[in-house]
């Protein structure tokens, strides 16, 4: 089922005579966690601002649940929950008052039970009647997510949600998001410049740089990288280095790196069976043959040609 919740079509944004977003297109499917990755200044926040109608665009269109954000903003926004940059809330009000505030703005009737349910989901029952100024950053982040979810949105947009969270907080957030996408069948778009967290959290990732589309990857690695011609890294565990070096001497393949009794080779995907056959015939004792899937970091570095990452 390829049910599209959000579609960005050829969007361009210029600011101060500079093209910040350049003909960007992508789409988010129902129920998936979609990573939105790019180095600092790539244009992630700008794209998100356009998606939620905070900024206009110079060209292109953004469609959310069939509604064009530029011409039908109110209808589109009924399906969106978002935190743009920081979880900005009214510090002088309690968590409950904040939720009531945003419930009234949602354009739907939101029951007391729904508020209770969401508060449970993000684990804020204890602190709900405290003023938000006394909340920790993690609690604010959770309250931010709670207010974004009140109205059963189809898409939750989070801009750098792990900013400022400690490792435990990040882990917690990741678990919440996973649970959410499962339990509420909600699509989640998470922007980040941190590869590691996108890798752990997302089903699919889009990479942008300088406002331009760089690439898109499925994160289980099963689909991409298996094309016959594509170079594939293979790691072999052998008995001795000499043995394999000898065996490969007159072949078309060569070792790219070695470590102890493990060697790595890079070769086209369709060559893998031949390589194994060749080694076996040469009497090389193979203990293990393993495909090395490039980490997102490798992909990212390769695609952005060394754009700043952390």
């Amino acid at each position: 089922m390829n049910d599209i919740v959000v579609e960005i079509r050829n969007v361009t944004k210029k600011m101060g005579g500079k093209t910040i977003i350049d003909n960007l297109s992508f789409s988010v499917e129902r129920g998936e966690i979609y990573g939105f990755l790019g180095p600092n200044g790539a244009g992630k926040t700008t794209t998100i601002r356009m998606m939620v109608g905070l900024m206009s665009m110079n060209a292109g269109e953004i469609i959310i649940e069939g509604h064009n954000v530029a011409t039908d903003r109110a209808k589109a926004m009924m399906h969106v929950g978002a935190i743009v940059e920081n979880p900005e809330l009214y510090k002088f009000m309690t968590g409950r008052q904040n939720l009531i505030h945003f419930a009234r703005m949602s354009g739907r009737t939101i029951s007391e039970e729904r508020i209770q349910e969401i508060v449970k989901l993000v684990d804020l029952d204890q602190a709900l009647d405290k003023k938000v100024k006394n909340y920790s950053l993690g609690m604010r982040q959770r309250l931010g997510i709670a207010q974004a979810l009140l109205h059963h949105p189809s898409i939750l947009i989070l801009d750098e949600p792990t900013n400022g969270l400690d490792p435990a907080g990040i882990r917690e957030l990741r678990d919440y998001l996973r649970r959410l996408s499962r339990e509420e069948n909600i699509s989640i778009l998470v922007s980040s410049h941190l590869l590691s967290e996108i890798e752990l959290m997302c089903d699919r990732v889009l990479i942008i740089q300088n406002g331009q589309y760089v690439g898109e990857r499925l994160l289980d690695g099963s689909k991409e990288g298996s094309q016959a011609e594509e170079l594939q890294s293979i790691q072999l565990q052998v008995e001795t280095m000499e043995e394999i070096q000898q065996a490969l001497q007159d072949s078309a393949w060569s070792i790219t790196s070695a470590e102890g009794n493990r060697v790595t080779l890079s070769l086209p995907h369709h060559d893998i069976p031949q390589l194994i056959e060749h080694l076996v015939k040469q009497g090389v004792k193979l203990y293990e043959v393993r495909k090395v899937t490039p980490t997102l970091e490798d992909t990212f570095l390769q695609m952005t040609k060394g754009g700043r990452i952390q």
Binding site: G53, L54, A74, M77, M78, V84, N86, Y90, M105, G107
Partner: peptide, 14 residues
């Protein structure tokens, strides 16, 4: 100042 303007302008309210 508090950045909450973003929060209220991403709702259905014009």
């Amino acid at each position: 100042k508090d950045g909450t303007i973003k929060q209220i302008l991403i709702r259905p309210a014009s």
